[in-house]
């Protein structure tokens, strides 16, 4: 069996083009929709944060004292601090595009950026 074949290179190029097309579609049609952030604890929606308020603030959620969130004036949100060992959530950085998400698995928290045009009557809490 060979290490690599010419066919593999074509396959890789094809996959890269496909990935590029998908990403282009995403950037054009999805990424810049008006957004809000949803915070989940144990897979349950516990908080919704509007991102376009221009406010800068740091907050926690009732369900977990281990994690601090930060809402930036530029409309992005991040895990600012967490006591988890891997710090993957903090390293995920600032999120602002629809579709982005960051998770703190040890603390069972996740942030998801979703389009803001959905009916929001079941939202638990609103900021801003």
């Amino acid at each position: 069996m060979s290490w690599m074949k010419k066919r593999d290179i074509y396959l890789v190029i094809g996959m890269l083009l496909f990935a590029g097309a998908l990403y282009g579609g995403y950037r054009l049609y999805v990424a810049n929709l008006p957004a809000k952030a949803e915070i989940y604890y144990e897979s349950k929606l516990i908080k919704t944060v509007l991102l376009d308020t221009g406010k800068e603030e740091t907050f926690k959620v009732e369900e977990s004292d281990h994690v601090t969130f930060h809402l930036y004036a530029d409309g992005s949100i991040a895990f600012e601090h967490s006591d988890c060992p891997d710090q993957i959530c903090v390293k995920s950085g600032k999120l602002h595009l629809v579709g982005q998400s960051a998770a703190c698995l040890p603390n069972k928290l996740i942030i998801k950026i979703v389009p803001n045009n959905k009916n929001s009557k079941d939202d638990v809490d609103m900021i801003g």
Partner: peptide
């Protein structure tokens, strides 16, 4: 586990 992840955003990243 986390429902409704946006595949259009992640699939290109997963491919690359």
């Amino acid at each position: 586990i986390y429902t409704n992840m946006v595949w259009l955003y992640y699939l290109p990243i997963l491919l690359v």
